[in-house]
Design a protein around this nucleic acid. Structure first.
Lengths: 213, 213, 213, 213
DNA sequence: TATGAATGAGACTTCATTCAT
DNA sequence: AATGAATGAAGTCTCATTCAT
């Protein structure tokens, strides 16, 4: 019952969907889709249960929005990195330095966990993630690696497998921390792990690994 | 109703728990804990819903049994491997050759996916898996790596991180296949991936990687 | 097994129904009909669940048998007592002395509690108990009281109500003990309570109560 | 489906718990706890099954609420009566006149039947009823009776047993009507029964019962 | 006759979704 | 736009009853 024209401290309704998606991410990531309760998401978002239905038709739609929202920023990021295609080793090192920062800011790991965990229940999401993010990233790397092999910089071997090798250390570290740190495991220092892993894999891939930093 | 000769009841009490756990694994692994329906598990096991409760008190107990059952064989396997500590590189190569076979026979990947996905909902399971399997495996490897570093065989660096680097390629390949192959992605050849990954990482770790196979 | 003709220590199958009814009484009396589980009755009777169905078609039949079995002995007892109709006061005193003994031996109170508690669920049983036991007993007493009133021994008043007054003390005492003694209440000494109650009521009923014992 | 003008939802949160308890009392009293079905309670209360869980966490909680609700009014009533302790005989006569009215308005008998019938399944309820209602009432009466004995008004004898004798007629009459009237028995006129019973017992208790009304 | 593993209908309970306010 | 009481379908779990042994 504020006098008209005084919406000073009222939250903008335009922000609501984003707030809800953020809350939903938190709950979905910790409980999984089926075990997540809309009541908890509503509470986390600071709105009523009914309000969720003003922005999303169903719980599934909310989940899709969460997953989709995790896609866009990464897509842009990766494409930009790939477009600037420098020497392959530099690309790898740049990503190894940047990705941990991204992972700490954006909830990539949480969303990836959801995609992996619900892939059987939401195959469209698995498909979208593969077709738009995971597949292109692997292809981009594999392409750069193949080019480097042609130039004699990288040893023979399956370029896609090399791409997996490069990315795997960071991902496994993130998953380990997410899964076991809450039950008392000593967490990994993700940036350090990423750095060591990429240097190690690069040293194993390159024909002339001499120039180690 | 039933065709003659189809006994309505079978009496195989001793076999039932194992059959049910196998069926439960299938369903839990594909749907997750919360989305799995006991009706489906019962159908998969070829028994009635009620029969499940002759062997497991609750759905949660059934899940615990599934996860616990995935633990024991791996424990034995890993301990045996670690006990025979040969030169570090040989150990790594041996495991890289054996693990893909194990992973294809036993549903390690499926169970690991469940542990990761439900870690927040079943922290005891995450704890058991860490304390009894994941933690010891990492520790065993880290120990062997540190020893090799002391002998000058392995370059400086965090031994636990090296252990993660070694294992990560296989695991990421398994997860990729589990997640994206059903939606049309080209699956990785797991043994080949494991071999190339371990060779690459070893080449990057060892001070004198000359002796590549 | 045993050589034929040597059934020495085997329980007679002729006793089974009785044993089961006894066990059923115990369980029904403590849990009520609906909350009683056949498994518990079977365990109490020392037989398997399936064996119950060799003697009773359904759980309800078992309950009916329990209630019916509580009926017969009491019927005979009461009719014998009424047949010998001496001076009314002596009848009352005799019963007041005998009934507590009966109540301690036979589970009248337990069965009565069941009849009262399940009267809405098993109206036939309530009807049988009323028509064959409770009604006749009240009628017998009311008849004797009316005769005593005609002889001037008992004051004016509703004979049926007088019958209720005479019986009520014992019954309430039994119910109190059954209900509240298990939760720590000091139980009543039933024979003493019955004696004092009957003497008190008689003293209030009789025109010349002088001859108190 | 619904006739127009019949709102599907009513919003009466404040009234609901009371309505539900009333409905639950009806059903629990007629069926007993275990045999009562929530669907029937919901229908009786005019709400959906799910709505019950907005106000009570479990069926047991609902039962507890029903029993507890039958406790408070009686407590107040009895305490008020005992506080005004006039000559003992007057107290007894006053209660004999009042209690039947109370019993006809409030469902004391129904709730008492439930407490008795479920005492073994819900010992806490039996304990609360004893400690807060039945025990104090008996103690209050016994105290008044002992005082009257000290003044020479009441004959020797166990005061607690006298209290039971006084109360028993009314209670047995109520139970008889509840149990056997539905199957065709002639019901007792409860106020008349209570009056005659109390006068009879008083006449038997008092040393000088001359002043009979 | 006796067993007890197995069944399946039915109960309690949860929660995504609706809608009067 | 927002609320939250209310719904009802669906899930977990219980247990009287059946039947191969």
């Amino acid at each position: 019952m504020l006098p008209a024209g005084q919406p000073k401290f009222r939250r903008r309704k335009a922000d609501r969907p984003e707030e809800i998606v953020r809350a939903a991410l938190t709950v979905f990531a910790s409980k999984g889709f089926a075990a997540a309760r809309l009541e908890e998401i509503a509470a986390e978002a600071g709105v009523s249960k009914g309000a969720l239905y003003l922005y999303f038709a169903t719980k599934e739609d909310m989940f899709r929005a969460v997953v989709a929202q995790g896609l866009a920023p990464n897509l842009a990021f990766i494409q930009a990195a790939a477009a600037s295609a420098p020497a392959f080793a530099d690309l790898a090192r740049t990503l190894a330095a940047l990705l941990p920062q991204v992972a700490e800011r954006a909830p990539i790991a949480a969303i990836a966990k959801m995609v992996i965990g619900e892939a059987r229940n939401f195959p469209e999401l698995a498909r979208v993630w593969h077709d738009q993010l995971v597949g292109p990233v692997i292809a981009t790397f594999a392409h750069a690696i193949a080019a480097a092999q042609a130039r004699g910089e990288v040893r023979p071997g399956d370029p896609r497998a090399y791409a997996v090798s490069l990315a795997s250390g960071l991902l496994l570290g993130l998953v380990f921390n997410e899964t076991f740190a809450p039950v008392g495991a000593a967490p990994f220092d993700i940036p350090a792990l990423a750095r060591q892993h990429v240097e190690t894999v690069l040293a194993g891939m390159l024909t002339n690994p001499g120039a180690r930093p």
